[in-house]
Nucleic acid binder design. Structure first.
Lengths: 142, 142
DNA sequence: TTTTGTGCAAAAGGTTTGCATACGA
DNA sequence: TCGTATGCAAACCTTTTGCACAAAA
């Protein structure tokens, strides 16, 4: 969810991260555009606002944010990694028509739970990937 | 599951694909090594057997096989796409220690089904990604 | 014979790295 | 001030492409 600037600064601190303008811009963009942007989309947006911003810094910021747990990497079809500022547990939906990715509110899979075992494996977490046709695309089809 | 050569040839035919030695080698490698190899790992293996094999052909073969539905792309953490010769529905488990990927036998998520609706979205299919510690790594930890 | 697959090498696209400089705490 | 973030450019790695040649149907 979207956090106020002081909250974000506090979150940075908590994770031993300096709150720099670029990092803030990256996180802010992600929080305000929950569409699972790629690094390049984030770079384009942040660079538009502050043209001095470089690609490398966007990548650095994303890694720092990810390591601090303020942002999540999302690996799905397509060549580039996507990023998500929503770090609470949730599932993902991928539209096979337009490629958009949406968050799906969390629901438990009864058979599983965190810290469950599956065979000799230890489950730390799980998520679902749903694929199909998004609202916009299904309205276009009809 | 592993198919005999005539079965594979038939499967190729069915999808309008010529059965060439490279394609066969790629599919055969994947079927015999169900560890979700990357294109490069497949290239290394196939090239070891037949040193004339090029990277480009491995990529071409993988795309042809994927398009024909004989192979699946698996997108997970890491820079490269992984491939899976098991095309039946199943889930995936990723070991956060060693990065290995294992198939998990299919089970339904009661709340969902193919062709279900979730909001205004049409679900065509779904899968689970489980993350944790694999058998080998958890035995090393204890 | 005709169509399509293959190898090679070069290019592309996304991401990482090295280094000098600028900036936050 | 000190340590680290930043910009730039070059490097890297995976994947794609163009083209001449070879092989499958």
């Amino acid at each position: 969810m979207y956090k106020s600037k002081p909250e974000v600064v506090a979150a940075f601190r908590e994770h031993g991260l300096r709150c720099t303008p670029r990092r803030y811009a990256v996180l802010d963009y992600l929080a305000r555009h929950p569409v699972h942007a790629t690094a390049d989309e984030i770079f384009q947006a942040v660079n538009r606002t502050d043209p001095r911003t470089s690609r490398a810094t966007v990548y650095n910021s994303l890694h720092a944010l990810a390591e601090a747990g303020l942002v999540r990497e999302v690996h799905l079809e397509g060549k580039s990694v996507r990023f998500d500022a929503i770090i609470e547990r949730h599932h993902h939906f991928v539209c096979e028509q337009c490629g958009s990715v949406e968050d799906i509110a969390w629901f438990d899979v009864p058979r599983l739970s965190r810290h469950a075992q599956l065979g000799a494996r230890l489950i730390r977490d799980y998520e679902m990937i749903l694929r199909g046709t998004c609202e916009v695309c299904s309205s276009k089809l009809s």
